[in-house]
Write a protein that binds this DNA or RNA. Structure first.
Length: 712
RNA sequence: UGACCUAUGGUGUAAUGGUAACACAGCUGGUUUUGGUCCAGUCGUUCUAGGUUCGAGUCCUGGUAGGUCAGCCA
């Protein structure tokens, strides 16, 4: 009984803030069958993992409340929109497993929108403006400054009607006029300063052809489309928050009060670490051939993830565990990777493949003998089936799995050491054959004949610490294997105001292994099939794959505690593990609101600087790119514990440039440390003297000003 | 010098005025014919200062930090 209560309690999952709004509306009299949602992509690019958040939210709401969800293409700009994208978007949504109620297009409503525009003109609430876009921009003012009225603002209704007709008929050239709503040029919300409703474009539209010479703007289209479709909740991302006032204004002008009034609500777009989400930037990666296409397995697009081997379930689950909110976020890509590993761990068959082969000869195994071993696809899942794996005298193992000498932490094969071959025998390494460079090219072993896996003998039950995967050389089949790493080396490549995201491209994001060796059971795989290559990772069959030339993508590697441990040992051999700690303290410093925490952080950083050489600091400065890094490196320069030497011109320029940028940073702690640095090393004063003088008067931060006064 | 939005572990989200919770990542151990999986343990003054209240992560005020807004893009 108690257990049951706990279960019920667990079922009662907490609501996200959108669901709370809906529950509130329901409580206030909205009928449940009035609920209706929409997903409104613009067909000018491919869907990415950020869109998946919106898709899962909207379609998830539809599922939760048993309400219809429309797929509406927001196609009001014929310049950038294409059928190719419409098709790709539909495919992605279907692949994710969602079903839309109606497939609709904003362009379906062009006629209605036009008639409503006429109505607004007749009511004196819209006017034709003959000015250029530059003139309109100048009159618009700024966020802190009111705009001024257009000289065409008070044209007569008749004149407006006549000119709008000329716009529509094609008589007015492109860009010569626009239709604007007459609201308020002094409105604090920029979107309310007489927004453009229609522009002239003599372009063919992918749906309406050349029927229209004028096209409505987003704001004049979106809310009206929601209204026409009786959408109850129109959910979009946060940057549209300030559009909401206009959304509501337009709605009030055209709506029948008896009908449902759609409600726009906004949530924060989802960012993923080590990648970008901007459609424009993704397009650039495609067009400039940094990747092979929108579906390159390194792309954060749905099609890229699909090709990489991600399952729809894993992506939907990722959206679920990520949740939604209204704050800026960068979700760790490790969470996405966890979701696909979690799914594939349960479903992917385990097989053996050797990527970097090392020949291993079992000297006491008969030359021509072949044993066919029945190997389970998954030792830990019942009824997962099995396949036949041939075993013979000569096999390949992974180069990494053998060392001539190693300490006892190395569980793999070493000379005179024993290891289990997965599903087969226990072997012992006796000798090696080397090439002229001294590289091991062959390992000679003996096997324990009684130790065959699953044979039930005492010998087969012996515990040996390591187990290796392998393939029989004469039975192996070849394949190309593509290993992917993150596309960017920075956690948030497009968050740096002064640096282009392309600077952070990872030059080693793709490694191709032309000739990997697979067990023969993989001969007849189909495109898209997922496998675990035992001990290596999850792989799927790429669409480039053909029966005579198999191609696999590594979806994600298995967690590798051994590699991690080894790397750590290597790192700690160097004194520079202090850098990691310094970065942590710098992070704390920025986040801290408490002076004690800050003092503590900076004391620690100064102390840790003792372990850092000036050379390694210079290397770090070369690739500085975040507030935290600027702060840390400046503090290290200021610490007295690093022996600096700026006599080399190149070194001077590097640091001078670094300080110059830091002085202009938005973060006041960074500026303060930069100023402090100039105070300490006065040789950097000269190049920035004008800036420093300005800062001494008008810097926002009083500490910065005070410090400047000490030496200026 | 504007308006609006946001602030909870390293990261992402819960807690709907009443014991700060879950997941990921990290770290320590254990199990293991995958150094995988699994299991156990571990990591926080809820940005800050006031106020309201028996009680505040939550409400109010000020501050601080970050974000959004000046396309005839969406």
């Amino acid at each position: 009984m108690a257990d049951k209560n706990i279960n019920i309690e667990e079922e009662k999952k907490s609501l996200n803030f959108i669901e709370q709004i809906i529950e509130e509306d329901l409580k206030n009299g909205l009928n449940k069958n009035q609920l209706r949602f929409r997903f409104p992509p613009e067909p000018n690019g491919y869907l990415h993992i950020g869109h998946a958040a919106s898709i899962c939210l909207n379609f998830g709401l539809g599922l939760r409340y048993d309400a219809p969800v429309n797929l509406r293409f927001d196609d009001t700009n014929p310049e950038k929109e294409e059928q190719e994208y419409v098709d790709a978007i539909k495919k992605d949504i279907e692949w994710l497993g969602f079903k839309w109620d109606k497939e609709l297009y904003s362009s379906n409503y062009f006629e209605t929108l036009y008639n409503w525009a006429i109505k607004l003109i007749k009511e004196g609430k819209a006017y034709v403006d003959d000015q250029t876009s530059e003139q309109i921009r100048e009159q618009k003012g700024t966020p802190t400054q009111a705009g001024i009225n257009s000289p065409f603002r008070d044209r007569s209704v008749e004149e407006n009607l006549e000119l709008f007709e000329k716009m529509k008929s094609g008589e007015s050239p492109e860009g010569s006029r626009v239709l604007r709503a007459k609201i308020d040029m002094a409105h604090p919300n920029m979107h309310m300063r007489d927004p453009v409703m229609y522009r002239i474009m003599h372009k063919a539209h992918h749906r309406t052809g050349t029927a229209w010479k004028i096209y409505p703007m987003y704001d004049w289209t979106h809310g009206q489309s929601d209204y026409l479709e009786s959408i109850s909740h129109s959910i979009c991302t946060l940057e549209f928050k300030s559009h909401r006032e206009l959304y509501d204004w337009y709605l009030d002008e055209i709506r029948d009060p008896a009908k449902l009034r759609p409600k726009q609500r906004e949530f924060a777009r989802r960012n993923l670490s080590y990648t970008i989400m901007s459609k424009r930037k993704l397009l650039k990666l495609v067009e400039e051939k940094y990747v092979s296409g929108w579906d390159d397995p390194r792309m954060p697009t749905i099609s890229g993830l699909r090709r990489r081997g991600y399952t729809p379930e894993s992506i939907v689950n990722f959206s679920k565990v990520s949740g939604i909110s209204k704050r800026d976020n960068v979700t760790d890509v490790a969470l996405l990777e966890h979701c696909i590993k979690d799914d594939l761990n349960r479903t992917a068959p385990r097989v053996m493949a050797v990527l970097n082969p090392l020949k291993l000869v079992i000297t006491n195994y008969p030359d021509d003998k072949v044993e066919i071993i029945d190997a389970s696809y998954n030792d830990y899942v019942e009824n997962s089936g099995s396949r036949k794996v041939p075993f013979s005298k000569e096999i390949y193992i992974e180069q990494e799995d053998f060392r001539e000498e190693a300490n006892k932490k190395f569980f793999r094969l070493k000379l005179n050491g024993e290891v289990r071959l997965k599903n087969a025998y226990i072997i012992k390494a006796n000798s090696v054959v080397k090439d002229e460079n001294g590289k091991v090219i062959e390992v000679h072993c003996t096997y324990d004949e009684d130790s065959l896996s699953g044979s039930g003998t005492e010998a087969s039950k012996r515990k040996v610490k390591g187990t290796l995967h392998w393939v029989s050389i004469k039975h192996a089949i070849n394949a190309e294997v593509r290993l992917y790493d993150r596309l960017f080396i920075d956690e948030a490549p497009d968050s740096h105001k002064d640096k282009d995201f392309l600077e952070f491209i990872n030059p080693n994001s793709l490694t191709i292994i032309e000739n990997a060796f697979l067990e023969p059971s993989l001969k007849d795989v189909k495109v898209g099939d997922n496998f675990q290559f035992q001990r290596l990772g999850y792989f799927n069959v790429d669409e480039d794959s053909k029966p005579e030339h198999l191609v696999f993508n590594r979806t994600v590697a298995l967690k590798d505690s051994w590699a991690k441990k080894e790397n750590k040992n290597k790192q700690s051999a160097k004194p520079n593990s202090s850098i990691t700690d310094i970065m942590a303290f710098a992070g704390k410093y920025i986040k801290a609101r408490d002076e004690d925490v800050r003092i503590n952080s900076i004391t620690n950083i100064f102390e840790l600087s003792k372990n850092v050489s000036f050379e390694s600091l210079l290397n770090l400065i070369k690739s500085v790119n975040s507030n935290k890094e600027y702060l840390a490196y400046l503090m290290m320069l200021n610490s007295e514990n690093i022996k600096t030497d700026f006599s080399d011109k190149e070194v001077f320029d590097l640091v001078d440039n670094f300080i110059g940028t830091a002085l202009k940073m938005k973060n006041s702690y960074v500026r303060f440390q930069a100023v402090d640095c100039v105070g300490k090393y006065q040789i950097f004063k000269e190049n920035h003297i004008d800036l420093l003088k300005t800062m001494a008067v008008e810097d926002k931060n009083t500490h910065v000003i005070e410090r400047l006064k000490e030496f200026m």
